[in-house]
Write a protein that binds this DNA or RNA. Structure first.
Lengths: 352, 352
DNA sequence: TTGAAAGCGTTACCAC
DNA sequence: GTGGTAACGCTTTCAA
C-alpha cells in the first residue's frame, strides 16, 4: 500500500462521472439538501459509492467561496498565545473559547502569521491585523480579539469595514462602537467597598497600578463612586491618581489614617503587606486589605479578592460572535459580565 | 462614523471599475507580480488609490481556491488542547509550533469542530479527523497531529489519501509510513543505563507504566538493549512485562536484589520512593533511581531524568511539514530528536 | 503594457 | 426528480 501521490483531489465532477449522474446531483446528495429535491434512493447509493471509491471529500475553499461562510472563528491575540497561556491571562479565555467552539461545531484560527516574524524579535511577538494591505482576519467568518497592547487604529478600521468581531475586555475607541465582553470591575470594586463598610471601615485608601488601561479605569470609577456614595474619606495617593505605594503615606496609615486599603493587584498587595509588616502592622488585625483582581490562595492565606469568570467570558464571546454572524444587524451592544467577590482572610471588622 | 453595513466586500472588479483599468491588471498590481508584467507607475498608483478608497482586501477563499494554497497549518489534537495545555503535555509542543508558524508566516487552525460536541460529553473531548464523510483537515495546507490517537484507521486513511501531515510522537500504523517527529526515548533509556553502569551498578530493575503505546515501547526496547549489551541482570517484574510496583519484589530489592531502578514515570518514582522508605531504604543512598520522562525538580530534589525537547519538536514539526508542502515527494522519513539526560540527585555510586 | 477569458470546485436557481 | 448553467473572486495564460 502506498500513499497516493497528491496530484489532484477528486472533485464532484469526478464523482458524477463515475456515478453516471450530473454534477449538481452529486452536490445535492452530498449537501443532503433533501428538502429541495428528493433524490431517489437508487441514485443516492450510486453517488455514495462513487464517493467512497474515489475517497472524495469536499474542497473547503470552494465551499467557503460559494457560501461566504467557513465555519471558522478567528482568535487574534495581540501577543503570542502560548508563552502567556500558562499565566492566567489568555489561558482561561481560550479554554472557554475552545469549549464553545467545539460545542457549536466551529474551528479556530490562530492568527500567527501577522507577527513580527523574527525569531529573536519581540519575545512579546506583537501582532498586527492589517499587514501589507491585507487583512488576514478575513480568513475567518468572524474573530475574537484579546490582548493588552491593542492597536486602537486597527480596531477602528476593522469595525468601520464591518468585519464581525468581539473584543474581550473593555477598549475605548473613539468613533467606533466595538462589541465587547467586559468583566464588570466597576461593580465589583463598589461591592468591595460595600463589604469594607459593612465591616465598619470608614477611613480607607486605594493603591493603584501604573497602567492606565480601561480595566483599571473601571476599577477606579467603581471605587470612587462607592466612596462617594458612602460618604467615606480617602486621602490616599492612589485615590488622587498616584501609582504605587508611598512610604510617607504608609507611615500615616500605620498611625491610623486608614483602617482598610483596596489594592489593584496582588503584586502590590504583597508589597503592601511587607511594608506594613516593617511598620509593625498586620493584615487583617490592624489593617484590612482587598485586591481588585483574581488572587490565588497562597501560604499566608487568601486575599479578599475577585473571581474573573474568564472561561465563561470566552464562551460568551463565541456565542456573541455567532450571534453577529447569524444576524449581521446585531453589530452593537457590549456585554457586562459580573465578577464574584472571593472572601478571604484579609478583611476583618474594624478594630478601634 | 458608522460601521459599514456588511453587504458585499469590494472585489477586484470594483477596484478595476473605479481605477478605470481591467480586473486582471488589478490582480497583477496587487499580487505584485512585477516580473511577469511591468505595470507603469501611473497605473499602479491609480489601482492602489482605488484599493484604499474602497478598503479592498483580497478574499482569502477565492485566493485559496485558485492557488491551492492557504498559508494555513492545521493542528489536530485528539483531545481538547487547553485543558491539557497547562500540564506539560501539549503545551510546549504548541509553543514551538506557534513560534515557528509566526516566523514563517503561517496561520494556525485548531480543529475543534471535530469534537463530540456536547458540553458535558467527554471531558476528554475525543476528536475525529473524518466526520460525516468530510475531512476538515483539508482546510489547511497540511497538519500537525498530536495526542493520544486511538484511531489508527484515520491515520492510515489520511496518509493513503496523500494529505500532507506529520505526527508528533511515534505511532505505528500498519501499511502506512506516517512521517513522525519522535523523541528518541530508546537512546535516552540506553544512556540512562550506561550512566548507572558507570556508577557501578550491575543489578538493576525496571518499573513500567500500564500503557502500551509506542513511546513506552521505545523506552523498554532501549533499556532492554542496554541491559543486554552490558550483560546486566534484571529480574524485576517490570522488565518481564508487568506494570506497576510489586511489593514482594520490593522486599527483595530492599534485601539487595537491585541497587538501581529505572522508572517510566515520575508518578511511579514517587510511589517507589515512599514504598522504599517504609522498608527503611533511602534514595540514592541505598538505591539509585532514574526516571524516563521529564521530571520537574521538587522539594526532595531533582530526579535523574530526561529532558524532552518539546518546543524544539514543535518547531521541527512545522519545518518538516512545510518541507512536505514545498516538495510533495518528500512524503517520507521520520525524524528522531535526541533527549538530553538531566542529572539529578537520585543516582549515586553503588554503595556495596 | 494591457485586456479578455478560461478555469478553480461548489452551490443554487431554473428549466426540463 | 434531475441536469444544465450561472455565479462566487481570484490568478494566469494568451492575444492584442
Amino acid at each position: 500500500m502506498t500513499a497516493r501521490r497528491r496530484e489532484k483531489a477528486p472533485s464532484q465532477a469526478d464523482v458524477a462521472r463515475l456515478a453516471g449522474v450530473s454534477q449538481s446531483a452529486v452536490s445535492r446528495v452530498i449537501s443532503g439538501n433533501a428538502a429541495t429535491a428528493r433524490i431517489p434512493e437508487e441514485t443516492r447509493q450510486r453517488v455514495f459509492e462513487a464517493v467512497r471509491e474515489l475517497g472524495y471529500v469536499a474542497n473547503p475553499a470552494a465551499r467557503a467561496m460559494r457560501k461566504q461562510r467557513n465555519n471558522l472563528l478567528g482568535v487574534h491575540t495581540f501577543e503570542r498565545v502560548f508563552p502567556h497561556a500558562r499565566e492566567d491571562f489568555y489561558f482561561e479565555f481560550l479554554l472557554g473559547i475552545e469549549e464553545r467552539a467545539e460545542e457549536t461545531g466551529f474551528d479556530l484560527v490562530l492568527f500567527t502569521s501577522t507577527g513580527s516574524g523574527s525569531r529573536e524579535g519581540s519575545e512579546r511577538g506583537e501582532r498586527k491585523i492589517y499587514k501589507d494591505g491585507t487583512n488576514r482576519l478575513n480568513l475567518a467568518d468572524g474573530s475574537i480579539l484579546l490582548g493588552v497592547s491593542t492597536d486602537r487604529g486597527e480596531l477602528a478600521r476593522l469595525w468601520y469595514e464591518g468585519y464581525p468581531f468581539v473584543h474581550i475586555g473593555r477598549r475605548e475607541v473613539p468613533g467606533a462602537e466595538i462589541p465587547q465582553i467586559i468583566p464588570d470591575y466597576r461593580s465589583a470594586s463598589a461591592s468591595i467597598v460595600d463589604r469594607l463598610v459593612a465591616h465598619g471601615h470608614r477611613r480607607i485608601g486605594y493603591v493603584r497600578e501604573w497602567l492606565e488601561m480601561e480595566p483599571y479605569e473601571d476599577r477606579r470609577i467603581g471605587y470612587a463612586e462607592a466612596v462617594e456614595r458612602h460618604g467615606l474619606t480617602d486621602t490616599s495617593p492612589g485615590f488622587r491618581g498616584v501609582h504605587g505605594i508611598e512610604a510617607s503615606w504608609l507611615d500615616e496609615v500605620a498611625r491610623g489614617a486608614a483602617t482598610a486599603i483596596v489594592v489593584e493587584s496582588v503584586r502590590l498587595a504583597e508589597s503592601l503587606r511587607d511594608q506594613l509588616a516593617t511598620r509593625g502592622r498586620k493584615i487583617p488585625d490592624d489593617i484590612s486589605v482587598a485586591v481588585l483582581e483574581a488572587a490565588p490562595a497562597d501560604l499566608s492565606g487568601q486575599w479578599d479578592s475577585l473571581e474573573i469568570p474568564r472561561t465563561e467570558i470566552g464562551r460568551i464571546a463565541v456565542d456573541r460572535l455567532q450571534g453577529m454572524l447569524d444576524d449581521p444587524d446585531e453589530r452593537t451592544g457590549s456585554l457586562l459580565v459580573p465578577c464574584v467577590l472571593i472572601p478571604g482572610t484579609t478583611v476583618a471588622a474594624v478594630s478601634d
